[in-house]
Design a protein around this nucleic acid. Sequence first.
DNA 1: TTGTACGCGTTATCAA
DNA 2: TTGATAACGCGTACAA
Lengths: 327, 327
Amino acid sequence: MTRLADVARAAGVSMSTASRALSRPDLVASETRSRVLEAVQRLGFHVNPAARALTSGKTGLVAMCVPTLSNPFFAPIIAGAQQAAEAADRHLTVVVTEGSARREAEVLTRLSGQVDGFIIVAPRGGDADLLEFGATTPAVIAERVVPGLTSVIIDTPAGLRDLTGMLKADGHRRVAYLSGPEGSWMDRLRCDALRESLGPNGELIVIGPLPPTFRAGAEAVQGILDRRATAVVAYNSLLALGAVYQLHNVGVRVPEQISVASADDLAALGLGAPEITTLRFDPAGLGAAAMEALMRLIDGRPPAVPHTRIPAALQLGSTTGRPATDV
Amino acid sequence: MTRLADVARAAGVSMSTASRALSRPDLVASETRSRVLEAVQRLGFHVNPAARALTSGKTGLVAMCVPTLSNPFFAPIIAGAQQAAEAADRHLTVVVTEGSARREAEVLTRLSGQVDGFIIVAPRGGDADLLEFGATTPAVIAERVVPGLTSVIIDTPAGLRDLTGMLKADGHRRVAYLSGPEGSWMDRLRCDALRESLGPNGELIVIGPLPPTFRAGAEAVQGILDRRATAVVAYNSLLALGAVYQLHNVGVRVPEQISVASADDLAALGLGAPEITTLRFDPAGLGAAAMEALMRLIDGRPPAVPHTRIPAALQLGSTTGRPATDV
DNA sequence: TTGTACGCGTTATCAA
DNA sequence: TTGATAACGCGTACAA
C-alpha cells in the first residue's frame, strides 16, 4: 500500500503539502499541486479512509434507515442513494428498523458516531425526537416532512389529487382507500389528500391500516363491496393488484363495475400486467436527492432546498373508468 | 464519545488490558475482564472502527454484492446478513451489480481494501475469476457453488425434486419451467434438477430466460398452452402468480387443467393469496449463515462447513393437483 | 497476568 | 504558500 508519505517524497514536498493538494487544492500553488497529483497517479495512491477518519472524524460511511426491505417500494430508493454515494466515494450502510420507533431510536443512537450522517426513510419516531437528533447529527428525512429538518419526498399527495379529479369527472363519489402500514406518515398524508380533494360531495371509505401486500389487497375486497364503493385507491400496487385479482375471482368486472388505482408504482416488479392506473415517479431519484442533500449537510454547506419534492404523475391504465351504476 | 482510555480508567486498569479484555478475552484474568466489561456497559463504549482499522487493518465493514434489489428475493437475505453483522458490531454495505459480470468485477476491485470481506450473492463472474478473487480477499458466495470457495445456498434443487415427485405421482408428464434471469447459475441448477427428476418419461419445456416479474409470468401463459404442458414450475412466485392470473383470465382452471408451482417463496410480499404450491425456506438464515461464515474467514478461522445448504421444503398449496386430461 | 511505549496514515495547528 | 509536529484511538511487541 502506498502512503501519502510516499507521494510526498516522490513529489518532493512535505506530507502536509501533499495532503492539502488533495483535500484543499485551492490552498496550494498550482505548480506544486500538479506535481503532487502526478505522483498520486503514478504511484496509484488512495487515501486510507481509516486514517482520514481518525483525524477528520469523517468516516465516509453514511447510514440509511428503512422500515423494512419486504416492501419493494424501498428497493430503488436504496439503489439510488447507493449509486450517489458510490459516485462520491462513500459507502452506504442500510439498516432495517422493522417499522418500530423504538428500534429506530436504538439504531440511530448506536450508529451515530460511526457514520457521517443519516438518511432516515419514512421514520416512525416523533417530530421532536427526530428534530433533536437532527440537531446533533447530519440527517435527511425521506418520505416525511419534519419541520426544521431537510427532507425529500415524492409528491404522491399531489398525484392523488389529480387522480381524484379524474375519478370525480368519471362520476365516482364513493371511493375506498386501502390504507398502508400502521404508523406511516405518508399514508396519512395520502389519505388526507384524497379526502380533501374528493370534496363534500364525495365519501372516502378508509380500509386499514393494511400491510402493503397482495394478500391484504385481496382480502380487502369484501369490505369494498360491502361499503358499495365504485372506486378503490390503494396505498401501493401490491394491494391494488391483490384487489384486482380478487374482484376478478368474485366476478366483479374492472373497471366496468369498480375502478382500481394505486398511489405508488412498483414498476420494477413488473406488476403492471393488467395496466393498473397508478402514479409514476422516480424512486431512485428520491434516494439520490436525499444522498446529495446529506452530503451537503456533512460538508457544512446548506442544502440547496430544505424540502425537495419529486413529482408523481398520474398514469392512466385500464383499471379505471366511468362506473356503470351510480349509487 | 467515550474512548477505550475512559473505560480503562473506570475499570482501574491500563489501556492495553482493556483492549485485550475486548479483543482477546482469554488473555485476561476473568475478574479483570468482568470489571472491564462492566465499565464498557456502563459507559456505553463502542470501539472506534477507524482507530481499530488503522492498527489492525480491519475496517469492520463488510460488503454484500447483489445482482439487483428489484427482485424481492434478495431483501430478506440482506436483512439477515445485516442483523448478523450488527450483532457482531460490524457494518454491512450493499452494492448492486445490476446482474452484470463487468460491473461485478469493478465493484469487487474498487471495494477490496476498503472492506474486510465480501458476500457475493448469485455472482455472474466466471469460476476462475471468483476463485482468484477469493484467494486474496475473504469472500463467501451465496446462491452459487464455486469449488474452492466457501458458499451458502438454499437447496431449492432438492425441493424441486420433491415437487417433481409429487407432480409425477399426480400424473403430470409435460412440465413447463418458467426460467429465471439470464446468467443465473441457480436457475441452471434448478432446471437441471427438474429435468433429471422428471426422468425419461417426462418432458421439461423450458420457457425463458425471463425476468422474474408478474408480467413475464402472465405473458408466458400463451407458450405454456401452446406447448400443452399440464404443470408449470416457475423460477419465483411473481412469475407463478402472473401465470395463475393470466390462466384465470383466459379461462383455464387452476389446478384442474393446469398446475402451477414456484421454486421460491416470496412470502414477505404476501403473494400467497391463491395459496401457490411453493418451496419454503429461510432466506434470512441464508444471509446470516453467509455473514457468520465470512466473519470466521476474516478472523482467520476455518469456516465450520465449506458449503452450507439451507433446506427448502415443499409446501403444498391449492394450485397443484391431478391433471384432468392426459396428453 | 498486566503495564509501558510506540506505530498505524492522515489532518490540523501553528510557525516560518 | 509551505513545513514541522502534535494529535486522533487503538493494537501489540516487549518488559515487568
